[in-house]
């Protein structure tokens, strides 16, 4: 087991890298010796992140609209061209918006599915043929994908789809590549601020650990599933939620 959390010589492709969870995953992966292809919709945000990370020799940034299949292919090509291999894929890009199903427009539904589900499909498809044996995918799903989410039907449906897609890929890419999902609960950061403003105390009361999680805690669970420590885990979803949801 020794050295299993060592990503020296390994290459991670990470979408949604400029978000708080994405940035924490990038930072942790680099700290353990790996190289990262970081993608995000905003090149400005990627530039800021790359500057913070300060490891230009092991970082490639690519502006990336995950709703485009061609863009996913281009990211994979850029990764191979720069680093010569891909070992790991983490799909962190997502969009979380409020809308009840009764009032949701077609455009709102389509946009959420396009980013949260189509984007994961395009990236997994583009990377599948290129992932090195012993490689792994972790798709960032959500508590919403496990139990549904009031006022976020599009997001919950997409994340539920991500969970099923991950299990399907676990079959299709086995035995060379493992595929798992992480379902974060309430994690510190801008995304949960409206929820906390509306129902913060009630949500904390329902969380046995009585606090929000941190992006770093999601990152550590993600790296565990990518690492050789998890070499017999595939098709699994790991919830990082402090006990807020247990089934």
């Amino acid at each position: 087991m020794s050295g299993a959390f060592d990503f020296s010589g390994k290459v991670l492709v990470l979408t949604g890298a400029a978000g708080s969870i994405g940035a924490a995953i990038a930072r942790a992966y680099l700290a353990l010796g790996g190289s990262c292809v970081l993608t995000d919709l905003s090149q400005t945000a990627l530039d800021g992140l790359a500057k913070d990370l300060n490891t230009p020799d092991r970082v490639l940034t690519v502006q990336h609209d995950v709703t485009s299949p061609e863009a996913a292919n281009a990211v994979v090509e850029a990764a191979i061209q720069r680093f010569g291999r891909i070992d790991h894929l983490v799909t962190g890009a997502g969009l979380y918006r409020d809308a009840t199903v009764a009032t949701m427009s077609d455009a709102e539904w389509r946009q959420s599915i396009a980013i949260n589900l189509d984007g994961v499909f395009y990236c997994c498809r583009a990377a599948a043929a290129h992932l090195e044996p012993g490689g792994a995918i972790v798709n960032i799903a959500s508590l919403a994908g496990q139990r549904g989410s009031k006022d976020h039907g599009h997001y919950a449906a997409a994340k539920g789809g991500v969970l099923s897609l991950s299990r399907t890929l676990a079959w299709e890419l086995a035995p060379d590549v493992r595929v798992n999902a992480i379902s974060p609960g309430l994690i510190e950061g801008p995304m949960v601020q409206p929820l906390l403003a509306a129902r913060g105390p009630a949500l904390m009361a329902q969380t046995p650990l009585g606090r929000l999680g941190t992006a770093e805690e999601v990152a550590k669970a993600t790296l565990f599933l990518l690492s050789d420590w998890a070499s017999f885990i595939t098709g699994e979803s790991l919830q990082v939620n402090g006990g807020l949801y247990m089934t």
Partner: peptide, 15 residues
Amino acid sequence: ASRFVTAQVIDVAGG
């Protein structure tokens, strides 16, 4: 690394 992971049942079963 897992201080926010609780109430989980992790399959170590190769799928």
